[in-house]
């Protein structure tokens, strides 16, 4: 009994496409580990144009296209209705994987409630349980813990962005246009009044930032902060500082991380040129992943860090920023 995986694509934006490819990659890897199965890609929308033509090379075995005026804007109601129709066409048991975009994360609740199976979001690891369903490991408490769930079929999971390798380009898969039934969710539901480009956001506030990059005396002077700011921009990170550099007047007090400053627990904390006085450690040691860059291999920061690079921050920062930019652009090492 080999299961079928259905990936609902989010072709609306580059992030949507990247996370869709990750979902396709995850679906393929999942099925391959348990003896194979078919991966179907669902394209929902209206006026999809050349999207199906491109999508057939994204790595699915089959592309199902629902092009319908009722799907012109994303509404969880109509999309769940459409996706449900597709699930019913596929050979059970069915696993639905959704991209980690806003669309996927919104759809998971509605679709799983509609299908009557299990559903969850932010999947980090997936595994099929032969008869029961889909086993999903997902983070809790900002990554400070994780839980494993067993979702009965038909299982729906949206994936955490960057947790799965994207699928690779494939030979063209067959594309099938599917008609939606005439009767569907009642009423217009919503009317789109306007759409505006994504506003450029500033760096997130320190205590909420998912990534924090902090600098200390190892940067040798305030004039070197642009190097740190470049790294922060590449990571979409908030900017922090050690007490020493705040006291020295290199950085404003608002950036101070530690006992007398802000307490942070981001997904990723990068301590650059910070030795790691207790004062600093109590403000950041609950971060999920800590990276330290310091010239002194015996610096206490390396005791709490997960990864360390011993060396001069001024030399290491530019190539690191560059490597992260490349990784984030999807062309990483």
């Amino acid at each position: 009994m080999s299961p079928t995986a259905l990936v609902v694509a989010d072709p609306r934006s580059p992030v949507g496409i990247r996370t869709t490819l990750e979902a396709l990659g995850a679906a393929r890897a999942l099925l391959d580990r348990s003896g194979g199965g078919k991966v179907a890609l669902a394209l929902l929308g209206h006026g999809l144009g050349d999207v199906p033509e491109a999508a057939k090379r994204w790595g699915a075995d089959q592309v199902l296209v629902l092009d319908d005026p009722r799907l012109a804007i994303f509404r969880s109601e109509t999309y769940a209705w459409g996706a449900e129709g597709l699930v019913k066409r596929l050979a059970p048991p069915v696993v639905v994987l959704l991209p980690g975009s806003t669309m996927g994360r919104e759809l998971v609740g509605r679709l799983s409630a509609r299908l009557g199976g299990g559903g969850t979001s932010e999947a980090l690891e997936l595994e099929l349980e032969e008869t029961r369903g889909l086993r999903v490991r997902r983070p809790l408490f900002g990554g400070k813990a994780s839980e494993t769930l067993s979702l009965p079929f038909p299982a729906v999971a949206s994936l955490r962005p960057n947790a799965f390798a994207p699928s690779e380009a494939s030979a063209a898969a067959p594309v099938e246009a599917v008609e939606l039934p005439k009767a569907g969710p009642a009423g217009p539901g919503a009317e789109l009044l306007e759409r505006s480009p994504v506003p450029v956001s500033d760096t997130p506030p320190l205590t909420q930032a998912p990534v924090v990059v902090s600098g200390g005396r190892g940067l040798r002077g305030p004039e070197n902060w642009p190097l740190l700011e470049d790294l922060a921009r590449a990571l979409g990170a908030g900017l922090g500082a050690s007490r020493a550099v705040v006291d020295a007047g290199w950085r404003p007090a608002a950036e101070q991380v530690g006992q007398t400053g802000a307490s942070v627990s981001p997904q990723l904390y990068v301590a650059v040129g910070i030795s790691g006085a207790i004062q600093h450690l109590v403000g950041m040691s609950s971060s999920r992943c800590i990276v330290a860059i310091n010239t002194d291999p015996s610096a206490p920061i390396f005791k709490v860090a997960d990864y360390g690079v011993v060396g001069d921050a001024l030399v290491l920062l530019p190539p690191l920023t560059e490597a992260i930019r490349r990784a984030r652009a999807g062309a990483g090492p």
């Binding site: 969880s76 109601e77 769940a80 806003t102 609740g109 408490f141």
Partner: peptide
């Protein structure tokens, strides 16, 4: 805690009304 963000649209489905996240 679970950071799931699942309840909103599932609630909409059970109530049979639109939902937006």
């Amino acid at each position: 805690d679970d950071e799931a963000g699942v309840v909103g649209s599932a609630l909409g489905e059970h109530l049979g009304i639109p939902s937006f996240a």
